[in-house]
Nucleic acid binder design. Sequence first.
DNA 1: TTCCGGAACC
DNA 2: GGTTCGGGAA
Length: 347
Amino acid sequence: MTQTTPSLPSNSNASSLSKVRVFVRRRSKRPKTTSLALQQHDLQPPTRDDHYKRSSFPEIEDFAYSGANAITQSSKSEMGLDVTLVESEAASTRPTGELPAHWERVLEGIRRMRCSAEAPVDTMGCEKAGDTLPPKERRFAVLVSSLLSSQTKDHVTHGAIQRLLENGLLTPDAINNADEETIKKMLYPVGFYTRKATNLKKIANICLTKYDGDIPSTIEQLLLLPGIGPKMAHLVMNVGWNNVQGICVDTHVHRICNRLGWVSRPGTKQKTRTPEETREALQRWLPKEEWVPINPLLVGFGQTICTPLRPRCGECGISDLCPSAFKEASNSSPSSKPKKSGPNKKR
DNA sequence: TTCCGGAACC
DNA sequence: GGTTCGGGAA
């Protein structure tokens, strides 16, 4: 059925079809002005209802998002850090209301902080590898990188990808024929490399038998792959297919959006409990042109300032706009963390 | 010892 | 929702 063809949702209406399939219309750097954002909004009248409609049904929208080419560009351009004027112009004409207060100022403030300091994250994680490969092989490289990158430092992932590449093991066919022990050695010391080696063999086989050696092109199909969950599925769609179906929400995006009060459980003011809940809540209001850059932006912010434990609110340029500022660091028990019993138990 | 750019299984 | 899977760096 729709297995090997790029996403063409069966429920898409006629008006959206014209926009589907505009993959990689431009691989060049994001414009240095707001033109992209403004152009996208010009596609349809920027009314409030319309905005919500688009956000609620992202699957029938398919902008060719030039910012998704994380493969060839530096991280700063990915996050729009070289964009001096980002949202303010477009936002000034945009209705407020259910949008979080001052969200543009918050985003701008985070961009500024990220400009002035380096963070461990350098791209959307892992998918630089393969940027010189033909499209089909590059997509597979992106998929494999995503699989390996979970719970793994970026440079470690990159090393494993390099080893696979140098040994000709970065194609579905090669991996399918390779010994699992061999794969395992190539992956080490990637996190959970044993499980990932097993999953990688299965994934290669699925790509060969069901997708003609390519990777799945829809979120639903990607989620059927072992080891690929929501976070990585959206990453692969964004980067592999340049097809923004949803926001790639990891633990940093999840944590920070809740601290900022940007998301909540539907109909309540409670924090979201899972990254998936955060993704759905965030997609309800965040303009689509921010869906891709929000990830590297908040990941870097989360690694350097808005850390899980003891966030550095004193160094944060938007603490005056953050409802959670100075609420976690100052009080509560600094040393004793309840957590679980852990490996502490002696025999 | 603690802390991780998740996902699967219980 | 709680655990487990790995290893490395702080």
